[in-house]
Write a protein that binds this DNA or RNA. Structure first.
Length: 319
DNA sequence: GCTTAACCTGGACGC
DNA sequence: GCGTCCAGGTTAAGC
């Protein structure tokens, strides 16, 4: 493994993030199922957008303590936004010590995904991205969300050396989605979720600008209750939104993977029980009791480990 | 309070 | 090539 950045990185990514003793694993962070529109090119550079700003990010693979090179577009050097999105002000080693003493299985996850961070995404993109997740596969979610941005989002002009085209697209404004066409969304694989997108956009638009952003400043339970009150949003999607964009670090989304983990680690007797609201709450509380205020972050490590295990089971060549 | 079926559809898998 | 099953969920009806 070489820590030497490719020529294209040295030439074009002029900003560097590195903090002694503080890990940041770019690939694990962006591959762990939190965000659906980041893509890696052949040089290993990750490309994605945060609001109306596009980023290119590179780090030597498998080296979470190595420098991270990055650039933003169209305005260069958006350090505050970069550090905010990747939550780089949060120190992980302290959390690791707490998690390892709470759960033996965390040790292997931390070894494997050291530096994985929970993102602070744009609430509108996160909200609609996880709309697409119900009864779906990650590949199809990524395709559908990307299509949505291309149809209704604002283009961001990219430099000629960007391999993903002359423009990337910002995620659409809520107002743009209120006038989206259901048949078009269905053609983009949104399926039965298509009318929900339009209906939810109308509700959010009627609530006034920034209704989702305002949830960042209310307690977790209040934000979760508001999201669950919306037609088509259940406890799992509400928890994904709370964790990945609303600063609710204790939110624990219980899906098929995190449920398997909970059964294995905390409550083997619940393996045959249906995931009713009561069982959902019980499992999420079990994570919080064990991992504390950052239970959602700990869950993300265990979730990613489970995901990787499932991928290896499907395709042994990955070993 | 729990179980079940319906909602879309691409891809994997078995035949 | 074709049929069947599954996937990061939610909802409402029936019990």
């Amino acid at each position: 493994m070489s820590l030497l950045a490719p020529a294209v990185v040295q030439e074009h990514l002029s900003n560097v993030w590195q903090k002694p003793g503080e890990p940041f694993n770019v690939s694990a962070t962006l591959e762990s199922g939190q965000a659906f529109r980041w893509r890696k090119d052949v040089a290993g550079i990750w490309w994605g957008t945060v609001g109306k700003v596009a980023f290119a990010v590179w780090q030597a693979e498998g080296s979470p303590f190595s420098p991270v090179f990055w650039e933003s577009f169209p305005v260069a050097g958006q350090t505050e936004l970069f550090e905010d999105f990747f939550r780089l002000s949060l120190s992980l080693p302290t959390l690791y010590a707490e998690w390892e003493s709470a759960e033996a299985e965390m040790d292997a996850c931390i070894q494997s995904f050291c530096g994985l961070r929970v993102l602070r995404q744009d609430p509108v993109e996160c909200f609609f991205g996880f709309q697409c997740a119900s009864c779906n596969t990650v590949i199809k979610i990524e395709r559908s969300v990307r299509k949505l941005a291309e149809r209704y989002g604002q283009p961001i002009l990219m430099p000629e050396w960007c391999p993903f085209g002359p423009v990337l697209y910002a995620f659409p404004e809520v107002e743009s989605l209120t006038s989206a066409d259901e048949a078009t969304l269905r053609a983009d694989l949104w399926g039965f979720r298509a009318p929900r997108v339009i209906a939810l956009a109308s509700i959010l638009a009627s609530e006034g600008e920034g209704v989702l952003h305002r949830l960042r400043s209310v307690p977790y339970m209040e934000a979760h209750a508001y999201l669950c009150s919306l037609q088509g949003i259940g406890a799992k999607v509400a928890d994904c939104i709370c964790l990945f964009c609303l600063d609710k670090d204790c939110a624990v989304p219980i899906d098929t993977h995190t449920r398997q983990i909970a059964v294995r680690l905390f409550s083997p007797d619940s393996s045959s029980r249906s995931l009713t609201p009561r069982v959902y709450a019980m499992m999420a509380d079990a994570y919080r009791e064990r991992f504390g205020l950052y239970a959602g972050w700990a869950q993300q490590y265990l979730f990613f480990g489970e995901l990787r295990r499932a991928e290896r089971f499907m395709d042994p060549k990955l070993d």
